[in-house]
Design a binder for these strands. Sequence first.
DNA 1: TGACACCAAAAGATAGTATCTATGGCTCGA
DNA 2: TCGAGCCATAGATACTATCTTTTGGTGTCA
Lengths: 244, 244
Amino acid sequence: MSTATPPDADDAHDGGASPAMHERVLEAVGSAIAAGSLPPGSRLTLEGLQQEYGISRTVARDSMKVLESMNLVYSRRRVGIVVQERRLWNLFDPKLVRWRLGSVRRDIQYSSLTELRIAVEPIAAAGAARRASAAERARLVYLAAELRRLGEAGELEAFLAVDIEFHCLLLQSCGNEMFTALEGMVAEVLTSRTQQGLMPFKPRNEALQAHEDVAVAVARGDAVAAETAVHHILDEVRNAMGLH
Amino acid sequence: MSTATPPDADDAHDGGASPAMHERVLEAVGSAIAAGSLPPGSRLTLEGLQQEYGISRTVARDSMKVLESMNLVYSRRRVGIVVQERRLWNLFDPKLVRWRLGSVRRDIQYSSLTELRIAVEPIAAAGAARRASAAERARLVYLAAELRRLGEAGELEAFLAVDIEFHCLLLQSCGNEMFTALEGMVAEVLTSRTQQGLMPFKPRNEALQAHEDVAVAVARGDAVAAETAVHHILDEVRNAMGLH
DNA sequence: TGACACCAAAAGATAGTATCTATGGCTCGA
DNA sequence: TCGAGCCATAGATACTATCTTTTGGTGTCA
């Protein structure tokens, strides 16, 4: 105990259960850029960050290095840290997706993701039909049945959870690591859709049937049928987006 | 060399345009992880990195922060910096894609990307049909004609360049920023396919026709036709991958 | 006596602070 | 136009604080 441990009441300024200082800064600056309140061309300096957030140079540097690796900023001597044009951002970085979903630009990010989902999921289902394990196939069938049960009972919240698991399982079992990496984003989209009230109160029978068709097709190993059935699931989403 | 700041004659590697020290370390460690020579669970320490690469703590930290933000590693006190399981990597980070394409795991990355392309491009074409500018539509038609000319002349290299521009233009004009962000990856895949000799010496007439169909459909604003025509382009690729 | 469980202290590593030198590249004035 | 000067990052170094794994010691029970 000799090790001092000064009670140091002023530890409080640290924000208590602080999730690491540099994360706080990263979140603050990153989301400001994502939201557009720090538009492309804006300049920051390490000095300024240190003062604004009460941090040391190291922490400021760490945060900026991460933003730089996401191509949200670049830094040049004598100039400082400059916000990049949007076109160059790493739009697939999960942190950036999260920031954008939390900003006023929500809608753009949401529709981009939905379109991505429309693109990827059918192919993922085809992959799953070819490569899923026996356990995964069985689970898909089970989840589809659960979806019908919960959907017909109108239990939207439980329905959402199972729906997420269903779609994520497809992405996991499709044998394409990059598709699997989209799991979190699909979960976000589905959650968001329900929260925004874009889901019908009771899922349409066609949608429930389509989920069952997907599960059966994957279980049978019928890639073409699986792909087609997922298209049917997503047609509803497409219509909601005003496509087709 | 001691620690004392030698102007560093031995910094020969620095010869001229040195891409910043921390990038060198980032590249070295990152590609080692991507290639699997630092398997998940491996441990590094800042101390070790400093000695191995002859860098200061600052640089070592910067590099690790970037790898951490890509989820390639995590760091814990008392343990060091630990390589993450593959499942958690940010597989869409362009740096990681590049490292993987440059490693012995090339093939996995290549087929993941190809499948992604199969998924995304049809939807991108549909988007382009709806939202492309007049200039973009015209350019697509021009590029399709160029493709036929070069294809029939057997000029594979020029054909590749135009093919890349064609597909990238689709991604740019589709109105979905996330699709646009995949441009670089599609270019990689197409280049790689030609380099690997996976292209027929003369592009098949069906493929040339399909490109023209895409261009015309986009120009007319016919989303469904554009999507279908891209499917035809990619069928060849699908077959080459043993899908369907 | 030996084996096991539990607790406390040591040690090893990052997290963060503070400060210094080197260098590139704007800006402005002659 | 060209050069001096200044500003801000790049990078180095040396701390302190803190977390957490290891390890070793102690006590209890078979």
